[in-house]
């Protein structure tokens, strides 16, 4: 056998693989509505498998739902494709990332038909380029088997007895981490760096992601307090039948994180996309959210499942202008870093 033959064979192996792999994946170009979203939405345990077939049946269309990884990955992809959009809808933009999407002008305005039933404090964008579909309060989750009486306020956290007891996420790499930082900004205004300095000792560590903080550290017993969503305890109650993990919304007031979706500018199927946004806030879609997303539906007509009785809530919502984020965020992060000794 000559050398040429070997080369051909070597080249053939990867080529065959490429062909095989491509064959497995392509073939959904004919579908009509393309939605970009994040992994947990379309996974088996997410709302996707329930709500997408409903929409397909209702309108006799095919939906091509593409998961991009995290919501940040999805937004980056959409910005990259700005001039030649492949998606009709971006689903899963949270209020903290929204300014990134808006500044690139990749979404068009659409006010859904039943918009007026959405409570005013949940409206993400006055121009309705992003329509909210779920939300949650930021919360401190505690392990009731380790502590009886959790801190009830930001001020309580300063106490010596919480030394090394709280896990927070890094606001630069995690959205609950950023929400928690903004919660302190909303509560303390310009004084927030001084506050962080005063709770520095209470922090066990600043984890890079929610998964690492919550699953990797908190549930492994590294510390009894963690920053998460107020809905987290409902998950444990629903699927693990335990009320061991409980939440606290601090007395100073609650802070919201809201998720929404928008129609892509220049979308090939914008009519259908509008119908999807209408569908997204309808009860049919909304009632699937609590037990799949573990977030609160924006439609107040939805009956919450029993496990949500454990979820803390408040009427005292601390305001913070999300559109102001773009201009102030850098500075806040810098101040935060120097406050915790970075």
């Amino acid at each position: 056998m000559g050398n040429g033959d070997i080369m051909k064979k070597l080249l053939a192996i990867p080529l065959i693989c490429v062909v095989l792999l491509c064959g497995c994946i392509t073939g959904d170009d004919s579908s009509e509505l393309t939605i970009y979203t994040y992994d947990s939405f379309v996974s088996d345990w997410g709302p996707g498998p329930m709500v997408i077939p409903m929409f397909e049946e209702k309108h006799g269309v095919k939906v091509n739902i593409v998961s991009m990884g995290s919501s940040g990955d999805m937004i980056s992809r959409a910005i990259l494709e700005k001039d030649d959009p492949k998606a009709d809808i971006l689903l899963g933009i949270n209020d903290l990332q929204m300014y990134r999407v808006l500044e690139h002008n990749i979404l068009e305005s659409y006010k859904p038909k039943e918009y007026d039933m959405i409570p005013a404090y949940l409206i993400m964008d006055e121009e309705w380029r992003v329509t909210p579909y779920d939300y949650g309060f930021m919360s401190i989750i505690y392990d009731s088997e380790v502590i009886d009486e959790p801190p009830r306020s930001f001020e309580d956290l300063k106490d010596e007895k919480w030394k090394g007891k709280l896990i927070v996420e890094d606001p630069r790499t995690s959205s609950p981490g950023l929400s928690f930082l903004l919660w302190t900004v909303a509560a303390y205004g310009d004084e927030f760096p001084a506050y962080w300095e005063s709770i520095k000792e209470s922090l066990l560590t600043v984890a890079p992601s929610w998964s690492t903080a919550y699953y990797g550290m908190f549930l492994e017993g590294e510390a009894p307090l963690v920053v998460s969503y107020s809905t987290s305890p409902a998950y444990h109650l629903e699927f693990e039948d335990t009320n061991r993990y409980k939440g606290v919304i601090f007395e100073e007031g609650g802070f919201l994180q809201i998720e929404g979706a928008g129609i892509v500018n220049g979308a090939a199927h914008s009519d259908l996309a509008r119908k999807f946004i209408d569908f997204m806030i309808s009860e049919e879609f909304q009632r699937e959210l609590p037990l799949t997303q573990f977030m609160m539906p924006v439609n107040p007509g939805v009956q919450l499942p029993g496990s949500f009785s454990i979820v803390e809530t408040t009427d005292n919502i601390l305001p913070l202008d999300r559109t102001q984020l773009e201009s102030s965020l850098d500075e806040w992060i810098r101040l935060w870093l120097s406050a915790i000794g970075g």
């Binding site: 491509c22 994946i25 992994d39 996974s43 345990w45 593409v66 998961s67 998964s211």
Partner: peptide, 24 residues
């Protein structure tokens, strides 16, 4: 992860995305 474009899923991508889907 940056280059696979949804087609060439490797084991580390699987792990990363499971974590993204809150499946620790």
């Amino acid at each position: 992860f940056m280059l696979y474009g949804g087609r060439y899923t490797t084991i580390p991508i699987y792990i990363y995305r499971y974590i993204g889907g809150y499946r620790f």
